[in-house]
């Protein structure tokens, strides 16, 4: 197994969890479930103080954080499914406000349908792997105006796209990886168009996009999930 110690990213989320108890508690509360908490604690304990080397899949089966959603690829898929539930519900709520019109309304309907397709596929894939789909969160959104809706949609799509990017090197099944990639670039398409409506660059991070760890992602969507 080649070392990837020169790649700084995989360790960072674990380090954060290990050294920041409040972050760990918040994460566990968001992810919900005592057994999941036990699983993550075991994964953290197994790491001890050792400097980790090697791929993200060596910890908790699915890498930092997503082990809380299940082992290995099932955990990653359920993590993704949780975000897709959030996105699908957000688009549904946004359309239902009646505050959108024109192209943004058209896009919200279309993107929402695409997110729902992701939900269906991920649920089926989790079951196909012998797992149980993640429980659907009951998110709350503040959608008082067109501007607030657009900002929220843009933010959630940016996070979602970065979240997939953060998992691509942790997925073990090539079929699951292909599916994740096929979804990832659709999220990136969504993110770019919504960002453009807010006057943002096509790719705010430039020629090379940065991945997001599950810890970062869950912190960014915490406000929707904990309401």
């Amino acid at each position: 197994m080649p070392s990837t110690a020169d790649s700084p990213r995989p360790e960072s989320a674990l380090e954060e969890l290990r050294h920041d108890p409040s972050s760990r508690k918040r994460f566990l509360r968001m992810a919900g479930g005592g057994s999941a908490a036990v699983a993550l604690s075991l994964a953290l304990a197994a790491c001890g103080g050792k400097k980790k080397s090697g791929g993200g899949n060596q910890i908790g089966g699915a890498g930092v954080g997503t082990a809380d959603f299940g082992q290995g690829d099932v955990g990653i898929l359920n993590y993704a499914l949780t975000l897709e539930y959030l996105e699908a519900d957000l688009y549904r709520a946004a359309v239902a406000t009646g505050k959108l019109s024109g192209r943004l309304l058209e896009l919200a309907k279309r993107f929402g349908a695409e997110e729902q397709a992701h939900v269906t596929t991920l649920e089926g894939t989790v079951r196909g792997l012998g797992g149980k789909p993640a429980s659907r969160p009951k998110p709350r959104f503040a959608l008082a105006s067109r501007a607030q809706i657009l900002t929220t949609l843009s933010q959630v799509e940016d996070v979602g796209a970065s979240a997939y990017l953060g998992q691509v090197d942790r997925i073990q099944s090539k079929a699951v990886l292909a599916a994740a990639l096929a979804i990832h670039t659709v999220e990136a398409r969504h993110a770019a168009v919504l960002g453009a409506m807010l006057g943002q660059p096509v790719s705010p991070q430039g020629a090379f996009a940065r991945p997001a760890t599950s810890v970062d992602v869950l912190q960014q969507v915490q406000g929707f999930l904990s309401g």
Binding site: L165, R189, S203
Partner: peptide
Amino acid sequence: AGSIVHVEGRHAGA
């Protein structure tokens, strides 16, 4: 590779 295709996806979408 994911980092690059992410940006390609943004280009394509925009």
